[in-house]
Structure formats: structure tokens, C-alpha cells
């Protein structure tokens, strides 16, 4: 780590809207978005998995699009709107995607689930009735080592139906 004086010299002031709340912070440019969410905002629902742009556990939405938050600097999200898993629930009620993952047993250990639900969110926002091929393509950047994916596909189909009906 560099000395404090150096850190202050290179620190950048950023404003990021996370789940509807504005976070104004002074950050080192090298701070990754996932660390910003977990350390500076105390939102630990976004997980660090591989930390190498592979597994998708750190997936969040930036202005509605899924991104891997381990492969962006927090300074690059300045002025943007981020949605994390904590932002899915509204007024104490689970989001249809969260509910469907539970109802369909679409998770086991749960480590990959926040990222999978946000990739699902991007998919279903544009296409509430995806084919199995479209689902596979949409979550190809999210690795799950427990479920074998079949119940995840079911959860995504169910979530789409419920969101369309809602």
C-alpha cells in the first residue's frame, strides 16, 4: 500500500447511486467497484468469487446492464445507477426473481445467486418469455458449482411468468 499522503493525492471523489441511495465517497482509483460496494457502502450481498472476470458472482447492474464489478473501477461508475441484490427487494417483499429462485430450488450454497439474479434481471427486463437457449446464453457468464443449473433454468422461466403477470 502506498503512504497515506500519496493515497490522498491520487484519491478521487465519486458519487454513485446504489439501490436508489446516493453514496458520495473519496476513493483510491484502483478500488474495484465490488470493493466499493462491499467496503465503502457496506453492501456485502455482492460476492467476490474468482476475481478474474470468469465466474460472475460479482455481477451487478450498471444503468440496467449486467457488469462484473470485479472488472471495473469504482471511479468508472461515477454518476451511474448501480443495482445490487440488496436493491431487488421492495418494501419488505421479495422481487419475483428472488421468489422464483427460492420456489424452484434454484440455489444450494447461494454464493453465486446474487450474480445470477442480476443477470436474470437484465434478461427478463427485455424478454419475459426467454427460450431455454436464450436463458443459457444470458447466464453463460455466471458459474454455479452446486445446482447443475436445471433448477436455475426453471427459476428464470418462473420469474419471467410471474413478472409478466405482475
Amino acid at each position: 500500500m502506498p503512504e497515506t499522503a500519496t493515497v490522498e493525492k491520487i484519491a478521487v471523489k465519486i458519487n454513485i447511486n446504489v439501490n436508489g441511495k446516493l453514496y458520495a465517497r473519496q476513493v483510491e482509483p484502483r478500488m474495484l467497484l465490488v470493493e466499493f460496494l462491499r467496503e465503502a457502502c457496506d453492501l456485502t450481498g455482492t460476492h467476490v468469487g474468482c476475481d478474474t472476470t470468469y465466474c460472475g458472482a460479482c455481477t451487478v447492474l450498471m444503468n440496467g446492464l449486467a457488469v462484473k464489478s470485479c472488472t471495473m473501477f469504482a471511479v468508472q461508475a461515477d454518476g451511474s445507477e448501480i443495482t445490487t441484490v440488496e436493491g431487488l427487494e421492495k418494501d419488505g417483499k421479495l422481487h419475483p426473481i428472488q421468489k422464483a429462485f427460492g420456489d424452484s430450488y434454484g440455489l444450494q450454497c447461494g454464493y453465486c445467486t446474487p450474480g445470477l439474479m442480476l443477470s436474470t434481471h437484465q434478461l427478463l427486463s427485455g424478454n419475459p418469455e426467454p427460450s431455454e437457449k436464450e436463458i443459457r446464453k444470458a447466464i453463460a457468464g455466471n458459474t454455479c458449482r452446486c445446482t447443475g443449473y436445471m433448477n436455475i433454468f426453471k427459476a428464470i422461466e418462473l420469474a419471467g411468468r410471474n413478472m409478466k403477470g405482475a
Binding site: T53, G56, T59, M62, A66, V67, T71, S119, A140, G141
Partner: peptide, 9 residues
Amino acid sequence: IADVQVRNR
């Protein structure tokens, strides 16, 4: 190219 997340960036 890679996956949805990478293609978005």
C-alpha cells in the same frame, strides 16, 4: 465474445 457482462463493457 465472452459473456453478457463482458459484452456490456
